[in-house]
Structures are given as C-alpha cells and as structure tokens.
C-alpha cells in the first residue's frame, strides 16, 4: 500500500480535525486546556513500531479501544508513565507528583481518557467517511510496549506490513504530555477510508 500526495493530504486533514476533536474532549475531561504540539501521519513498517516508543521493553500506559463496524481495527492511546501519572493527578485534583502507581480506580480513569480520545477521533472519521464505526469499551494496561503491540496484531510483524501511525504530543499549561495515538486498521479498512476520500 502507498499513499499518493493528494491522499496523504486528505488523510492528514482528516486526522488533524479528528485529533483536534479528541484534544478538545480530553481538555474538557481533565479540566485543563491541552494543545496538540505536534501531529504526524505516516505509514510505518510494523517492525519499527516498538522503536517509535523507545524500544520493545519500554514501559507505557496503554488504553485499548477495539474498533468494529464498517471499519475495524485497534485504537490505542499510549502515554509514557510520567504523563499517565500527570493525567491522574489532574483528574483526581491532587498535587502533581502524587500518583505513582496504577490501582483499579486509576485504570478506570485512564480508560475514560482513552475512551474520550478514541471516540472523538473515530466520530470524526465516521462523519468524514460516512462509514459506520463502532468503538467498544476500553481496557487498560501498563506494560512493555513490545508485548502490547505484538498481542494486538501479531500478523503485522510476520508480513512486513505497513501500518498507519498517528503520532501526537499534547502539551498542557505547565508541562509536556507525551502521548501517541495509534490506529491500526484491519486489512482492507485503510483502503475503505481512502476510497471515501478520493
């Protein structure tokens, strides 16, 4: 699969709007204005994915939202651990530096963060493409990024597939929040999205 210049631009515009919507939803939820500091869309070889996050053993907080409907796949919001703890301190109205682990309440709160982000993104995608897209309830884990990625889509690592990666950094009023949003469409779904943009 390859993206032409016009397709790339259309996709970038779509992702731009979708992430703006996601960021707005997230700002409302955490009660603090967040801005998108950087945003990029690219097709990356699947085997390179762990290196985007610092290597297979890098611990991350991940919120997974399975995607079904006319487009299916996996939406995952990754935070480095410090960012996840910063979000938790914001959400629980506690001094920065308080959160330092993930109990079930924390996991549930972060699931909501992922849910809002993914739902906003997918809503924009559905509105633009007129395709029905149904997010499922989110799930949370904090673990090695390589283990999460190879569980999500083991076959990608076999066939040297390229995957659509949306990278974004959020920035809060006082600190940089490092997050990656990854949308891994199932085989055939990227083509469906692109077909609606042509």
């Amino acid at each position: 699969m390859s993206l032409g210049k016009a397709e790339s631009q259309e996709l970038m515009n779509l992702v731009d709007r979708a992430m703006a919507r996601a960021c707005s939803g997230l700002s409302d939820f955490v009660g603090s204005e967040l801005k998108i500091e950087s945003l990029s869309v690219s097709l990356e070889p699947a085997e390179r994915l762990p290196s985007l996050f610092g290597g297979a053993e890098t611990p991350v907080a991940a919120i997974y939202v399975p995607v079904n409907g006319m487009i299916s796949g996996h939406a995952v919001l990754f935070f480095d651990l410090d960012t996840a703890f910063t979000f938790l301190d914001c959400l629980f109205l506690q001094p920065q530096g308080t959160a330092g682990s993930f109990d079930p309440l924390h996991a549930s709160a972060l699931c909501e963060v992922g849910n809002i982000t993914a739902s906003a993104f997918l809503s924009e995608l559905a509105d633009t493409t007129n395709l029905e897209i149904l997010p499922s309830p989110p799930a949370f884990t904090a673990d090695m990024v390589g283990a999460i990625l190879n569980w999500l889509a083991p076959e990608l690592f076999l066939w040297e597939a390229e995957v659509l990666v949306i990278k974004t950094n959020f920035i809060g009023t006082s600190q940089r929040l490092k997050g990656f949003f990854l949308f891994l469409p199932a085989p055939g779904s990227v083509e469906k999205i692109l077909a609606t943009l042509r």
Binding site: Y64, P137, A139
Partner: peptide, 14 residues
C-alpha cells in the same frame, strides 16, 4: 499472554 481483558475478541486469544 492476553494483554487486555476484552471479552468480545476471541481472535485476540492468540
């Protein structure tokens, strides 16, 4: 391992 507990995705019990 099964990294996330999601009931509706049997294919993910790889």
């Amino acid at each position: 391992a099964r990294m996330f507990e999601v009931n509706h995705a049997p294919a993910l019990d790889i």
